[in-house]
């Protein structure tokens, strides 16, 4: 009868049945709000992001925040051991994660973490990749699409030159990295379905 809200950002994914869904939600909200604010602060640091209209900044952040967080917290997922360490420091085995109701989305996250992790990016390369992820997010709702496209192009160019300057004889890494963008879109869609399915009991 326990109540579950299985998300690696949630410091208390399991609560007694006596706890209301509203309380579960509010305590979860206190966990993910700082993470969202961190993404916003990161976005402000992206050269050119703040030249976009405020409306477009909000739209990009709305559609891209989960994907940036997925990259940001990718290391919480251990694809070899099939464990996830939540932000509360607790590591959950696959059996426990399944018991928490985590299914195909979790499998896709393990897969993504393995692929991204295998590229062995440096922290600054990962940060620039996160910037590309954000500006590559879904553009429905964006007004000045041209400005976003230009920003994306500039950031992709910067990412390519950073990676190729460090690994001149590895021409496969950059394309492999860009292939992670559609993976993130798929994860985002799966995660959105989960969000939609989440209801707060009256």
């Amino acid at each position: 009868g326990a109540k579950v809200l299985a998300c690696p950002l949630n410091s208390c994914p399991v609560a007694p049945a006596s706890r209301s869904s509203q309380e579960m939600w509010e305590s979860f909200s206190q966990c993910f709000t700082p993470a969202v604010k961190e993404v916003v602060e990161f976005a402000k640091s992206i050269p050119g992001f703040q030249t976009l209209s405020q409306h477009d900044q909000v739209m990009l952040l709305k559609s891209g925040t989960f994907q940036v967080l997925m990259v940001r917290f990718c290391s919480l997922f251990d694809p070899k051991e099939r464990t996830v360490t939540f932000l509360n420091g607790q590591t959950y085995s696959l059996a426990s994660l399944r018991a928490l109701g985590m299914g195909s989305l979790l499998d896709a996250m393990f897969d993504f973490s393995e692929k991204l992790g295998s590229l062995g990016l440096e922290p600054d390369e990962m940060a620039l990749f996160m910037a590309v992820v954000l500006v590559s997010a879904d553009r429905s709702g964006i007004v000045e699409v041209g400005a976003v496209e230009q920003l994306q192009e500039n950031l992709i160019k910067a990412l390519r030159s950073l990676i190729t300057s460090r690994r001149p004889d590895d021409s496969t890494l950059f394309p492999k990295l860009l292939l992670r963008l559609p993976d993130l879109r798929t994860l985002n869609n799966q995660h959105s379905d989960k969000l939609l399915a989440f209801r707060i009991d009256p």
């Binding site: 909200s29 969202v36 402000k44 405020q54 952040l61 709305k62 559609s63 925040t65 969000l195 939609l196």
Partner: peptide
């Protein structure tokens, strides 16, 4: 098709975090 982000109140958090910068600039 509902807006999944609204389930989290995401837009509100984002606007406040962005506005935080606007208020600083105006001061």
């Amino acid at each position: 098709f509902g807006d999944p982000a609204s389930n989290l109140g995401l837009e509100d958090i984002i606007r406040k975090a962005l506005m935080g910068n606007l208020e600083e600039r105006q001061e």
